[in-house]
Design a binder for these strands. Sequence first.
DNA 1: CGGGAGATTGAGCCCCGTCAAAAACAGTGG
DNA 2: CCACTGTTTTTGACGGGGCTCAATCTCCCG
Lengths: 217, 217
Amino acid sequence: MANLHAPQIALPVHPGLIARSGEFAQGRPVAQPPVFFSAGSEVYAQGERCKGLYRIEFGAVRVYRLLSDGRRQISAFHLAGETFGFEADNVHHFFAEAICATGIHIIHASPTNGMSGELLPLALKSLVRAQEHLLVLGRQNAIERIAAFLSDMAERQGGLKQVDLPMSRADIGDYLGLTIETVSRVFSRLKQKGVIRLPSLRCVEIAKWQVLQDLAA
Amino acid sequence: MANLHAPQIALPVHPGLIARSGEFAQGRPVAQPPVFFSAGSEVYAQGERCKGLYRIEFGAVRVYRLLSDGRRQISAFHLAGETFGFEADNVHHFFAEAICATGIHIIHASPTNGMSGELLPLALKSLVRAQEHLLVLGRQNAIERIAAFLSDMAERQGGLKQVDLPMSRADIGDYLGLTIETVSRVFSRLKQKGVIRLPSLRCVEIAKWQVLQDLAA
DNA sequence: CGGGAGATTGAGCCCCGTCAAAAACAGTGG
DNA sequence: CCACTGTTTTTGACGGGGCTCAATCTCCCG
């Protein structure tokens, strides 16, 4: 029997695919019951055939790609309520992993169901997001990248001052094209300047909104 | 009367919107006649309302965004045969300019015409492209970026050894997140290593395919 | 209390950006 | 055809931001 109290770390092979009996399917009609993924478990892999789209009920997901020597680029984080998994030719070009304990609706899209009309706007939203992230990676320095990241995360969590970061510093680095050390140093500098506070490792409190916005340019 | 022999430079305000009487509308039925854009002229601007999609008949286009201090990030180049102009909320979030003399079909998409079925695959192709470019900007060094760029351009031009680059070094730099000087230096290094030859400024001949591929990683 | 992963901090170095000058190129007009 | 001019590209010298390597610190959990 599968261990429901699995350690919250990345596992080598497809873990965490423990379907539950629809207990998260509240609020809207969906084609499939939600699936639970433990922290670090794989949602899909590069090269895998697409099964449909993924809507996050709770938790968070990282979508990334690897270079042959192990360098990793996270192309997006996805939070509760967001939909991801768009691909061009029915084959995944990226990996997707749960960052923390995460519940996901797998939507088996097909020409026959009513989803197709809603697909394009969602895909376009992903496109604009990716294109805006290109600007960050191509033309902004370390402080600006972190500032942009924090602003974005805060906005996506409702604009509250308290932002929680489900991902590790390594994840943030691989998202922003920085090393873990640089991420840490910039956090320290922002803290020291009084722009942010760090109640805990995975929680940021934004003290000076305007300064952060200006930094994000 | 508009000057058809306008200088091939960037102009301050909306030039080049000289509609021709359908002389390029060969091969496929389109909703509108093609439009001619001179080098450097604006196809659309950030903040402008979307008029539809754009299919390039000949020439090339750069799509970019600016930071307040003038830093520029080109998110994509588009060549003949390609379709661009996807946006999330009917408003352009980017600028688009013709790189050289360019003919474009403006496709006024609407729910009523037959386009909507072909839209999603095209949008998804743009999405995958952008996401793969994130990996380049986030995790690859200067040589790898140039190698990836040249491989991509070569592939999109049919895999021939002779690749022509309609864009300037500055454009390449702003696409790859490098300075114009670094772009030039890397070109020189690749030439000196015998990986490429430069018959002219805007034309590259790839001498050692395998080496280039390996560099692009 | 002890062990281990993640995070922080420091020292040194290197790639690439900045500044500057020279060279190559493209137009223009004589 | 060539001289003249402005733009683009190349090349060089130098400095700095961020990466690398390494040590220390902080949380968690057992």
